[in-house]
């Protein structure tokens, strides 16, 4: 007898199931389903944005490293340039000083040469004058005495030496 469905129970069950389906379909399922879907979406979104943030952070780090490398490179370049500059300045200064010194030495040398030439000219003219004087004196003393003559010459020589 339990194998034959009872019509009264069928009717009741249909009515009850219909009512609960209607009520739940209106008040329970859409609310819960929507809430779950919303939550899933927000979780998905959060995950995606977290991944993006991570990516951004990684990019930032890479950029930072790049910038640091660049700065280091620039610093090295500047230092190197500075050293080069220094070297150049020193070299230039040295060359200039050398040239100056050479010039001064040359000048001095030229001066010396001129002085010497001047002195030689002077000496030459004086020697000529003196020679003439000596000659005249020798000629003059020769006239009087031989002894005196010699004496005069030696005197004259001494005089020349003194001069």
């Amino acid at each position: 007898m339990f194998l034959i469905p009872h019509l009264g129970t069928i009717i009741w069950t249909t009515i009850i199931f219909g009512i609960i389906f209607f009520i739940l379909n209106k008040f329970a399922w859409p609310v819960v389903l929507k809430a779950i879907e919303d939550r899933e979406q927000s979780i998905d979104k959060a995950l995606v944005s977290a991944k993006e943030a991570e990516k951004k952070l990684r990019n930032l780090k890479i950029e930072e490293e790049k910038m640091i490398a660049l700065a280091k490179h620039e610093k090295e370049q500047i230092v190197r340039e500075g050293m080069d500059q220094r070297e150049k300045i020193i070299t230039a200064a040295r060359e200039k000083a050398q040239a100056e010194a050479d010039k001064i030495i040359e000048e001095a040398r030229r001066q010396l040469k001129r002085e010497r030439e001047l002195a030689l000219t002077e000496m030459r003219s004086q020697i000529a004058t003196l020679s003439v004087e000596i000659a005249s004196k020798v000629v003059h003393a020769d006239m009087e005495d031989k002894k005196r003559h010699e004496k005069l010459v030696s005197e004259l020589i001494n005089e020349v030496e003194l001069n």
Partner: peptide
């Protein structure tokens, strides 16, 4: 007669439905 009684099974179904709701 045509029996549409509120039997024990129907009562149980109603109770289950109320709990569900």
């Amino acid at each position: 007669p045509f029996d549409i009684s509120l039997t024990k099974t129907v009562l149980a179904t109603i109770i289950v439905s109320l709990i569900m709701l």
